[in-house]
Design a protein around this nucleic acid. Structure first.
Lengths: 249, 249
DNA sequence: CACGCGCTTTGATCTGGGTCAAAGACGGCT
DNA sequence: AGCCGTCTTTGACCCAGATCAAAGCGCGTG
């Protein structure tokens, strides 16, 4: 695991409130999206006390499948991909994580997948044991985590439907719409939508090859359903047609 | 939703112990596998008080995707498949559930998938609201559910790897080994392993067609890796070779 | 115990997406 | 501004698995 730049942890800035929201969590722009959403100031202070902040640049490994899962993470900025490998190098990207997402749910004592940054990324990191202790003290946090796990399971099943039964065109249309929906949820532009990952990453996520991904983008462009813009932005010119192709809501 | 035969709920049988384990849960042969595993007698009594027992015969619908998810279930006997459909009828089976498995984790207010019995099945049914209340009273149950959700997520990712990147032969080998491992966990025969679901169900689970599933079984049989026996039993004659093909542990 | 129906197997052929190859295009760096 | 390495696109061909078709095979039923 490559070592990230640690920014250490900033203390509260001495306000009058006895359980003042500490600086780092107070400054968190994505709290409402995270596992921390339901926490009161006291709980938030406890979270702040055990979290460390880290920055990874693009393309860095965060952890590998099989490693002891000593840390869990909250993504606060950027994009991460998680993936599994077969012995001969075939790769399946099982998810992309964005600001607000929790990283590490599917791991027992060892990580069930590898994680790598797609763009520059900031995370809050927790020691597993310390987080477990916190979950016991603040049941609302554990309950929130269970809700998040449920959503991830539903998403996983949607992805199985895509991988098992959809055509290349349907996969790309679904992918773009999901990306757009998630961007909207996170308060980023839903259209044009930012597609920060490479064709290879998209292919490995959708169970296709880069060539097929590229050809399919071209086809959708030719048919006037999307436009490829500068800076990896994709305009969804005909959302209705895309949704009809994708059969995803 | 078809109506199952309700057996009602049996009361405790009046032993001296003030929190005697009530009859139905006491008789539960799969408790150690379920969400109820970590519960003490008091908690178990509370579970028993809100659970109703139901029997479904083979091929019955339990609920459909999109329905309000008023109930959650514990499978105590038999096999269930859960699946999602596309508008034109393409189907993806996203999981098979066996005795001990919890059904309903991935659902918010509506079920994220349909559920149907494969064999005759017995379940414990909970009203969502009542179970939620119990989870608040007994955090060890909530914690257990979170662990279960984590396992399901890891399993889902393994399945994405299968659907996105494995060949037909690798898929069948993986499927048989996972089925065998789960049978062992549940205390059933791991070899020969019981394969209760139809070729169509297997195909829809593995992202293949019935024809390909059938041909692949035949090929594995011809190569001496498996034997198809009476009563849907499959002997895994060469587990090592199967594991090498599957790259699954 | 013969009949019929649904499931499974096998065969012949087709095709969506993979593979192999090469030409653009886009930065980043000097 | 020009060069180089990487990523993306396009083209030609191929193949694993889908599709279409037709026997087998069990098993429940009268």
């Amino acid at each position: 695991m490559t070592m990230p730049t640690s920014e250490g942890r900033r203390e509260g800035d001495g306000l009058l409130d006895p359980v003042a929201i500490p600086q780092a969590c107070a400054a968190c722009g994505v709290r409402s999206l995270t596992v921390c959403a339901p926490l009161d100031n006291q709980a938030l202070a406890a979270v702040d006390a055990i979290a460390t902040r880290h920055t990874f640049e693009a393309g860095q490994n965060i952890f590998d499948e099989g490693e002891p899962s000593n840390h869990l993470f909250n993504v606060t900025r950027g994009t991460i991909k998680i993936y599994k490998l077969l012995a001969d190098g075939r790769r399946q990207v099982t998810g992309f994580l964005f600001a607000g997402d929790f990283l590490g749910l599917a791991s027992d004592s060892a990580y069930a997948y590898s994680a790598e940054t797609v763009t520059e990324t900031k995370v809050c990191r927790f020691r597993r044991g310390q987080l477990d202790e916190l979950l016991q003290r603040f049941p609302q946090m554990e309950r929130r985590l269970l809700v998040i796990a449920g959503h991830e399971l539903a998403e996983a099943q949607e992805q199985m439907l895509l991988l098992g039964r959809k055509t290349a065109k349907e996969r790309i249309a679904s992918f773009l719409l999901v990306l757009s929906r998630r961007a909207k949820q996170a308060g980023r532009s839903e259209d044009p939508v930012h597609v920060p990952m490479s064709r290879t990453d998209i292919a490995d996520y959708l169970g296709l090859t880069t060539e097929t991904v590229s050809r399919t983008f071209t086809k959708l462009k030719t048919e006037g359903l999307i436009q490829l813009q500068a800076g990896n932005m994709v305009a969804l010119s005909d959302r209705v047609a895309l949704a009809e192709i994708a059969e995803t809501d």
